[in-house]
Nucleic acid binder design. Sequence first.
DNA 1: CACTGATAACTGACCGTTCAGTTAGTAAGT
DNA 2: ACTTACTAACTGAACGGTCAGTTATCAGTG
Lengths: 213, 213
Amino acid sequence: MPDPPAPTEAPRWRRRRDARPAEITDAALALFAQTGFAATTVAAIAARAGVTKGTVYLYFPSKEDLFAAVVRERTLPMIEQGEALSAAFTGSSSDLLRQLFSRWFAVLRAPERIALPRLMMAEGVAFPHLTRFFVEEIVQRGRSLFASAIRRGIGAGEFREVDPDLAARLATAPLIYAALHQTSYASFDAPLDADAYLATHIDLFLGGLRADS
Amino acid sequence: MPDPPAPTEAPRWRRRRDARPAEITDAALALFAQTGFAATTVAAIAARAGVTKGTVYLYFPSKEDLFAAVVRERTLPMIEQGEALSAAFTGSSSDLLRQLFSRWFAVLRAPERIALPRLMMAEGVAFPHLTRFFVEEIVQRGRSLFASAIRRGIGAGEFREVDPDLAARLATAPLIYAALHQTSYASFDAPLDADAYLATHIDLFLGGLRADS
DNA sequence: CACTGATAACTGACCGTTCAGTTAGTAAGT
DNA sequence: ACTTACTAACTGAACGGTCAGTTATCAGTG
């Protein structure tokens, strides 16, 4: 005869309404980062979050909305952190840029952090609303951070007269590109000494920006 | 009574064995560039090429092989062209770099050209074989092009002593990133003056590389 | 030049599978 | 006993890939 459930047996599941959304977005981020949006199934996200597919749809109306929630949740803090650093900084503009470079690069090199920019770049075409949000709230604000630092340096006579927006784009591109490269190509490419890369970038960039010659 | 087929009536289709593969890869590139690999259906590619799905499978064993064919066909010529330019160049290393920057950027900014790097970055994880090919035959060879020019400049005392490979990565990143940005974000971002961007990059980069101070 | 197979390029209907999203019912919590 | 978080089985649509049949083309024949 079949055993009756032992009294110590754990329940098949628990009701944890408050914890679910974060667990689901965590799982979604991890899987999106690994395999992309289209190639990740909702069932797989659910499984990783320890629930079933139906539960995902209790908290998020669609796979796309889940994606949007992940992007909003996981990218904004990064920007806000940078803005706080910048606002509080009192040293030279070169040093501020050095700080920004290092912090950003450290963050971006984490596979789960660069994943969202990569996803937006790769599969964003299908989600114009989300892309608009991402560009306005992340890309532009991130760039402004660097542009302000450069403008500050020009004002102080520390840097040459250059267009701060262009210079900011040029400052950030190698950081972002290297992070993208790392997740996509690194395993087939020659190894990259990330610290040396960053140091050389800072060196060349600040060298090109310096007010002399 | 039914009309007999008029003698001038065009046949429903033509047998054009030689032309098909190129027509199919053309159509595939256009659609992959627009919507990505996963989101593009073989039927849509076939329709754009003026055939039906079955025909696509007469020429390419699978959708993935079709993708591989597109990548191989459309990226290699770009590299070979750059290598030819570099080999024939006789001026200063700064001028060679200026040339390489301009040529590459012009090519990369064409939406259909940057599409493949973007696709490899975005969906390459699913195709390790293809990614290896792409990295070894395109990414590395492209970088070597710039590294050689930089090494040449260092040898001639024109540039500072820097790691040529790192510098080459830093030289190309802004070009590639801007091209990626253009196809993904540009319609939601502030407009970018591409010529000024390129000029500023050349200016800052060569400024940072110059052998003095 | 007209006719006639023979050949292979091409079609289109079909199949098996996968997956986003739905829902009727079950069990945890109170 | 009542509410609701959660499950699991289901649906309908889409897609990659296949294949039996159709038709354009052409060499060979008279």
